[in-house]
């Protein structure tokens, strides 16, 4: 089990335990405000948008081209944006901090 922290737009912080699955699924299990995951994780809705803590940018990795195309048109996107459904949780993510974009 590793710890992952979500910070919502309202400024609330919630640390949850995780082992596998995607960041979107994890956020939904814990009812994180601002992560809806409407499309169920197929990269179609962008309701799972998070900003990755820069210290973890390399660990989490770059978005794929398809994901980049989605993020490019998102008004809240920055260099650390990712779609949570496209991030598979790995042991190296322990301590990861994610800011919910919406």
């Amino acid at each position: 089990m590793i710890n992952i922290t979500f910070i919502t737009q309202a400024g609330e912080s919630k640390t949850v335990q995780a082992s596998s699955g995607t960041i979107m699924e994890l956020a939904r299990q814990h009812g994180i405000e601002g992560i809806d995951g409407d499309c169920g994780g197929v990269c179609s809705c962008a309701t799972c948008h998070v900003h990755v803590d820069p210290a973890f940018a390399e660990v989490v990795g770059e978005p794929s081209d398809i994901e980049k195309d989605m993020l490019e048109l998102d008004d809240h996107a920055d260099a650390y944006s990712r779609l949570g459904c496209q991030i598979e949780i790995e042991p190296s993510f322990d301590g990861l901090i994610l800011t919910v974009a919406n």
Partner: peptide
Amino acid sequence: RKMNPHVGFGFGHHKCLGATHAR
């Protein structure tokens, strides 16, 4: 299909409001 960035429910501001129901 795992990667499916479709626009069947539209895209952007006007994306379908009824999509939750339809799904």
